[in-house]
């Protein structure tokens, strides 16, 4: 897992020459096959990172490498072939009148022959468990289904990296877990690299690694359990603490010495059960 697929080297960016830096000297790596979550308050620079990664924006200072290609005007189209993006609003990313037309759209743009196109559309929809909806009109789908189709559209183009830019923030809890379950499976089976940009810490908890952004800078980087130990510091950064961590804190404050590194509900349930046995 030590193959770097994305590298940011001292990247700075601002939207306007007299605006403050949206990103200030940002460096980090993403490794092939990992799920990286980038979290941060609104305006912390996380979406700017996404836009820089596929050349929707270009850095003012510093370099970006995607799969060892240095991002530049000349290579931007090669780089975009490596990256698929799924955005926040499921209704803004539909172009086709049916689910399968929609997934085919990107392939048509790439001039893929019809026979292969059909195969790829079907395969992509199978991967996101939407094979039964081939001829449905997109606007009849639920939010979670729409986002899964959006992921299929991206998958059909066979990218190496998928960026989820707040892709679950408009979904209800069920839709959110549908999408995240599909993503987890894709990462495992297709060895895709996932970068999810989010301020939902429950979503971030599913990642292998988390980068916390604050005011355009990388504030902290670590495993989810290390990040959630930051506790009150996360709240100061405009974020929140996951539910389990909050509960552990409440119990600790009342004299129960529960280890701080219990981050997941099932472990806490077990711990409380054991605690009672020993009293």
């Amino acid at each position: 897992m030590n193959n770097q697929i994305v590298q940011f080297k001292n990247v700075s960016f601002r939207y306007d020459t007299d605006a403050p830096y949206a990103l200030n000297n940002v460096s980090f790596e993403v490794f092939e096959g990992e799920w990286l979550a980038i979290v941060g308050h609104n305006g912390s620079g996380k979406s700017t990172i996404a836009k820089l990664m596929n050349g929707l924006l270009f850095p003012e200072k510093g370099d970006i490498y995607i799969h060892h290609l240095k991002l530049s005007e000349e290579l931007v189209w090669d780089i975009r072939d490596l990256i698929g993006m799924v955005f926040q609003n499921p209704d803004n990313q539909f172009v086709g009148t049916t689910v399968q037309d929609d997934v085919a759209f990107g392939l048509e743009n790439h001039g893929i022959p019809r026979k292969e196109m059909i195969e790829r559309v079907h395969e992509a929809l199978r991967q996101v468990k939407m094979s039964n909806f081939l001829d449905q009109e997109p606007h009849h789908l639920s939010g979670g289904q729409k986002q899964r189709v959006a992921i299929a559209s991206v998958l059909a183009l066979r990218p190496r990296i998928i960026i989820l830019d707040e892709a679950t923030s408009m979904l209800d809890p069920r839709g959110r877990s549908e999408v995240l379950d599909v993503v987890r499976e894709l990462k495992k089976k297709e060895k895709l690299t996932i970068i999810s940009i989010t301020h939902d810490l429950e979503e971030a908890a599913r990642a292998d690694r988390i980068i916390v952004m604050n005011r355009g800078e990388v504030y902290r980087e670590g495993l989810p359990e290390d990040i959630f130990k930051m506790d009150e510091e996360l709240i100061r950064l405009g974020l929140d603490i996951p539910f389990t961590t909050k509960l552990v804190k409440g119990l600790r404050d009342n004299g129960y010495d529960i280890p701080k590194d219990i981050l997941n509900e099932d472990k806490l349930v077990d711990y409380i059960w054991k605690l009672k046995q020993n009293i």
């Binding site: 308050h41 609104n42 408009m170 709240i235 405009g238 974020l239 929140d240």
Partner: peptide
């Protein structure tokens, strides 16, 4: 209608 969609936890 979903007045906090897209805002960070503090917002």
């Amino acid at each position: 209608d979903e007045p906090t969609a897209g805002l960070d936890p503090r917002g």
